[in-house]
Amino acid sequence: MDVLSDVIALMRTGRPTSALVRWHAPWGQRFPAVPGSAGFQVVLSGSCLLDDPSGPVRLNAGDVLFLPHGHGYTLLGEPSAEPAEPRWDPDREPALLVRDTVGDEHGGGPVTVTLCGGYRIEAEHAHPLLRELPELLHLPAGQPGAAESVALLAREAAEPGLGTDTLLPALLDVLLLYVLRAHVGEAGGSPAGSGRTGWAAALADPPVAAALAAVHAEPDHPWTVASLGARAGLSRAAFARRFHERVGQPPLAYLTWWRMTTAARLLRTTDTPLSVLAARSGYTSEYAFAHAFKRAYGTPPGRFRAERHGTPSA
């Protein structure tokens, strides 16, 4: 598993929700803030405007918007459009694909088709990369890979068939990966020695990225600062300093955080025995694992699993 793939897997709880909307001009729509979520908009055909405080941003077919912190925003069919108030309850989780039509279908005005929706996230335990993202990320149309994914998404949303409920969330995950990859790529384009820190910069820094990839691929390995430094091609001291500067915490602190985060995900979604989870997390005993997990999450792993599954704990 590479780090970006893990970020996607960690980000959501449950499945993404989405709505396919045909907007008939004139139209405008405010989308409410939804705490504990990450929202997206994919323009499948036509165009619209993002009403940004610094000036409207034109969105064309193939453009993707990602709002990692669930902030509200407004889309307009044209600059003079009056935005309507939210039409959807942000606390309601619709089926994977809901179709809707806004405006006069017979009015003859331009039509814009969007796929909007969001992921439910556990903000408290989200990967630091997500917490560092800006309020809004915009991936313009025509990006290699993303363009093909948008085309597939448009076709699947317009003509759902067998397997659509599996294909749509998978394609949305692919698009999100392209958005994050582009963001990390911008960090990688910073001049050497620019002093840029944060997760995007860390993933674009080859030595630090090599160490992170090792931790994510083998969380059960008995890593030390020296062995991770060897993976990074740096001395122990140089690696520890560089990792801390980029990531914001020491290498072994991140290793422990990643082990516990992975264990929590498996506790929520599987019935893997605690002894197996302990071994996968690099602990030689179930007791040591349970102690570390309780220190991280404030509750023993068995109780954490029972509460997440909605069953009484012992």
Rank of each mutant, 00 (worst) to 15 (best):
I8D: 01
M11G: 12
M11T: 11
T13K: 11
P16R: 00
R22S: 15
R22N: 10
R22W: 14
A25S: 15
W27E: 06
Q29G: 02
R30H: 14
R30Q: 15
F31Q: 02
P32K: 01
A33Q: 05
P35L: 04
Q41N: 12
V42D: 03
V43T: 13
L49N: 01
D52Y: 10
P56Y: 06
L59N: 01
F66P: 02
G70D: 08
G77Q: 05
S80H: 11
P83G: 05
A84N: 07
A84W: 12
R87E: 14
E93W: 12
E93V: 12
V102T: 13
G103H: 09
D104E: 12
D104R: 08
D104Y: 11
G107C: 02
P110V: 03
T112G: 06
T112F: 13
C116V: 15
C116H: 12
E122K: 07
H125Q: 09
A126C: 11
H127W: 05
H127V: 00
R131H: 13
P140W: 09
A147C: 01
S149W: 07
A154M: 03
A154Y: 00
R155W: 11
A157T: 15
P160F: 06
L162E: 14
T164R: 02
T164Q: 01
T166R: 09
L168W: 05
L175Y: 05
E186Y: 12
S190K: 07
A192Y: 04
G195H: 07
G195R: 03
R196P: 08
T197P: 07
G198D: 10
W199V: 02
L203C: 04
D205E: 11
P206E: 04
P206F: 07
L212P: 01
E218W: 14
D220Y: 14
H221N: 11
W223C: 00
W223G: 03
V225C: 12
A226K: 14
L234I: 03
F239W: 06
F239A: 00
R241M: 01
H244Y: 10
E245D: 13
R246E: 10
V247S: 04
P250H: 01
L252E: 13
R259A: 10
R259C: 10
M260S: 03
T261L: 13
T262E: 13
A264T: 03
L267R: 02
L267Y: 09
R268L: 13
R268A: 14
T270H: 10
D271Y: 09
P273L: 00
P273N: 02
S275P: 04
V276A: 06
L277D: 05
Y287T: 11
A288R: 05
F289D: 04
A290S: 14
R295E: 14
R303M: 05
R308L: 10
H309E: 10
P312V: 00
S313M: 00
A314S: 07
A314E: 08
